[in-house]
């Protein structure tokens, strides 16, 4: 089966980060594959292997023709990539991003499935997969933790607070997968060497027939530091303190 995976290339979360004048993240540095997208890549590769054929195509949007993260996913085993890179997209909001990615997905040819992460590690907006599904007229299944392909449809275990929902959807469909549900493979050395030769189609907004000159309906007015963590509650152990810990965890719905 043919699968499109959305991969975001982000500044290394472990490194220092800077904001631009418009309060969006400065992305003019080396970008890496967002770890939360590595799960989607792994799932796509597994589904392709199970189906016995087809291609995994990566779709990404990043500045400065950045392909470092794409190369990582190609080294894992994806066949090809489409990268939208355009200065006009600097600071684009989630809806604009979804429009761009939707057009790029259409360019990828026939596909059975589109896979994305539930949210990116740098933006945490989390609306892009559902927006793409709407734009492409696809069923949207979010928070997938397990995906099984059957004749013309998918059966998805959708993560919930209490357990999971079992959802069926016809193909093609758009799925967002939660992090940690599979173990992403390490790229092999041969994979790394092969990735250098795999096709990566680098295009701009005009190649997609889009015009973003009007900008987008979002502006970041100010940014504040996250509030400092408040001092925790101290429990003196009187032999019964475990009950208070259990109560605390129950209140948080952890147990």
């Amino acid at each position: 089966m043919n699968i499109v995976v959305l991969v975001k290339q982000i500044p290394d979360p472990a490194g220092p980060s800077e904001l631009e004048d418009d309060y969006t993240l400065d992305r003019n540095c080396k970008l890496i594959l967002d770890e939360s997208d590595s799960y989607g890549v792994e799932i796509a590769l597994q589904l392709r292997e199970t189906s016995g054929g087809g291609e995994v195509t990566l779709v990404s949007m990043a500045p400065n023709k950045e392909v470092s993260g794409i190369r990582t996913a190609l080294a894992m085993g994806a066949e090809k990539a489409i990268l939208v890179t355009d200065d006009a997209l600097s600071g684009a909001d989630a809806l604009t991003t979804a429009k761009v990615l939707a057009k790029a997905i259409e360019r990828a040819g026939d596909y059975d499935l589109v896979i994305g992460a539930t949210e990116s590690t740098d933006g945490y907006v989390g609306t892009v997969p559902a927006a793409i599904a709407e734009l492409l007229g696809l069923p949207s299944v979010t928070f997938a933790k397990k995906i099984e392909v059957q004749e013309g449809k998918i059966v998805v275990q959708r993560q919930t607070e209490a357990g999971y929902d079992l959802i069926e959807a016809p193909l093609p469909a758009m799925i967002s997968v939660t992090a940690g549900v599979v173990e992403p493979r390490y790229p092999s050395f041969k994979g790394i060497m092969a990735a250098k030769k795999k096709p990566c189609d680098i295009i701009g907004v005009s190649d997609l027939g889009l015009d973003v000159s009007a900008g987008w309906g979002q502006e970041i007015l100010s940014v504040e530091d996250a509030p400092a963590r408040a001092a925790g509650e101290k429990i003196e152990d009187d032999g019964e303190s475990y009950l208070k810990i259990v109560e605390f965890l129950e209140n948080k719905k952890i147990i």
Partner: peptide, 10 residues
Amino acid sequence: MLREAVRDIT
């Protein structure tokens, strides 16, 4: 990328 891959495994 070779370096990163070896680092990740190690």
